[in-house]
Structure formats: C-alpha cells, structure tokens
C-alpha cells in the first residue's frame, strides 16, 4: 500500500511508545509534508541524542557530559541526596524548583514478580555514595506502588545505618483536589502523613 521508504518510516515510528498505526501514519505524512531540512534536523537530533547521551557516573541521570550538569553545580547542597526511580522523576522534582540537593537515579524499581531485583538497579552505587560521601539526608522520592514500597523498604534496610536521616516524600491529596472525590487509599495516606500547623 505504501511505497517502501514510507512503509519503513511508519514501521519505525510505530515502535515508539504510545504510537499506533494511525498516529504513525499521520506523523509520517506530516514529516513528508514539511521542508526536507526539518526532517534532516529531526534525523540528526535522533542520531546525536543516541550517540552522545549516556548516564552520569555519579547520579546516573541521562546526560551528554559526565558528570552531568546537576552534579557539577557547586551551589547545590551536597549533603542531601534525593533518590528517584527514573530520570523523568528527577525532571519532575527539578520542575518544582524547591529542591537544591543532589540526585541518584535507580533506573527502575524492585519488582520481584517481574524478576527485577536490587542488583538490576543502581542500589549498590547509592550505598557506595552514602558510605563514601558526607551525606546527612537521603530523601526517597519513589512512587507509592507495591514496587515502590518494596524498593523503599529495601533501601531503608540498606542505608538506615549509613546516614543520619532517611526520609520519604509525603503522599496525599493533590493540590486543587477535592476530599470528596479522593480514593480511600490516598485519604488514608494523607491522614497518616498529617502534620501539625
């Protein structure tokens, strides 16, 4: 139905997450409709990103330089490490502009049912960092799912004795949310994590 290069482009686009056959077709036609230079820029960006981006040897965030920008910044609090599961979680926390410490990206969560264990993640490296650097607090910014709980409990056991303070981000109602529509689990968490005002 499609000419060979177009079919190949649609097939490749379909490999991307959340892209089905229809969307792939729409994207392919859009790329072909735009000036050739735009398509070349896109292709070049893809090649450069895959060739240049690796992981930071300190925090394991995605970065074209090693160490990454965040690890090189001297004005950040080096005695606090925020542990996140994925680089996109780090981006979410950075967007708040509230956190000024360092990061550590685990590269996933412990999921025993899927066979993902601590040795498949950057936990050993976190323990080494906490042991070797002067760390006063480790903040666990990990999802409150069963896999997240498993990872949190595991990390707590491993690093509790190495660092004065291990904390976890609070869970509860989203800002602008309505109590009436909150689910029971979230409300229970919100009550559990209540604080004095």
């Amino acid at each position: 139905m499609y000419t060979r290069p177009l079919a190949r482009l649609i097939d490749q686009l379909q490999l991307l997450p959340g892209i089905g056959p229809k969307t792939a077709q729409r994207l392919a036609f859009h790329i072909l409709k735009r000036p050739k230079s735009e398509a070349q820029q896109l292709a070049q960006a893809l090649v450069e990103a895959t060739e240049q981006i690796g992981t930071c040897s300190v925090c394991f965030n995605l970065s074209a330089e090693d160490p990454c920008d965040l690890c090189r910044q001297t004005n950040r609090q080096s005695e606090i490490i925020c542990v996140v599961a994925e680089p996109r979680d780090l981006v979410a926390i950075e967007r708040t502009r509230e956190y000024k410490g360092r990061y550590h990206v685990l590269g996933g969560l412990i999921s025993p049912m899927e066979g993902i264990m601590a040795e498949n993640l950057r936990i050993k490296e976190l323990i080494a960092r906490v042991g070797n650097e002067d760390i006063q607090e480790v903040i666990l910014a990990i999802n409150p799912s069963i896999e997240g709980e498993t990872t949190t409990q595991y990390l707590k056991k491993q690093i509790k004795l190495l660092v004065p303070r291990v904390t976890r981000i609070a869970f509860g109602l989203p800002v602008g949310g309505d109590l009436e529509y909150a689910d029971e689990m979230t409300l229970a968490r919100a009550l559990e994590g209540r604080r004095e005002i």
Binding site: P112, M113, I146, E149, T150, Q153, Y154, K157, D183, M185
Partner: peptide, 23 residues
Amino acid sequence: CLRSFRGLSAELSRLAAAQYLAE
C-alpha cells in the same frame, strides 16, 4: 475499594511473601 492490606507495606519481608503468594 473494598479492602486493602495496609499491613503488607510496612515490612519488606511481608511485601515479599505477599508478592510470592500472588505470583
């Protein structure tokens, strides 16, 4: 939600046993 097992997430070994059973 009809029922949740809040006690499971308080301890790593409980979480491990529950996931083992579920698997």
